[in-house]
Amino acid sequence: MNSSEKKILIIDNDEMTIEILKFILKKEGYKISIAKDGVNALERIPIIMPDLVITTIIIPLKSGLQIISEIKQNFKNIKVIALSSLGEEENTVEEAFELGVDDFIAKPFNPNELLLRIKRFL
């Protein structure tokens, strides 16, 4: 399957992060969907069935950790990469991995590194 058939859901409420991700991922040919809060994200996942979810940890209505947990319980094939601002507690990272997150990247992130990680999953 080539990248143009792969769907990525971005869950973030930071416009700058969304724009950066949209730019680099569309350039690679991925189909992008955006959710700006956890409730909207969880409503959309069963509809769009993304191949990969990129979620920030701190997001309105439901946290990134809650989203990771629900995805990994209900949609085992969906890969999840968590983005987290530097300085968030180490136990958040540990908890994300305990919930089944596939990868974790600190913000600000290197777009090329993120792309390599995405390609590893897709």
Rank of each mutant, 00 (worst) to 15 (best):
V39A: 10
V39L: 14
V39Q: 09
N40A: 15
A41D: 05
L42I: 15
E43W: 06
E43Y: 07
R44G: 06
R44K: 14
I45M: 05
I45S: 02
P46Y: 09
P46N: 10
I47G: 06
M49L: 15
M49N: 11
D51S: 15
V53A: 05
V53M: 08
T55S: 09
T55C: 08
I59C: 08
I59H: 02
I59M: 10
P60S: 13
P60M: 13
P60F: 15
L61R: 14
S63L: 08
I67F: 07
S69V: 07
E70P: 05
I71M: 02
I71E: 01
K72L: 13
Q73I: 15
K76I: 08
K76F: 05
K79W: 04
V80A: 01
I81L: 06
A82P: 06
A82H: 04
L83F: 03
S84R: 01
G87C: 12
E88F: 12
E88G: 04
E89F: 12
N91G: 08
V93L: 09
E94C: 09
E94P: 02
E98R: 14
G100L: 09
D102G: 02
D102K: 03
D103T: 06
F104Q: 04
I105S: 04
K107W: 09
K107M: 15
N110D: 15
N112F: 15
E113G: 06
E113F: 15
E113L: 14
L114E: 01
L115I: 13
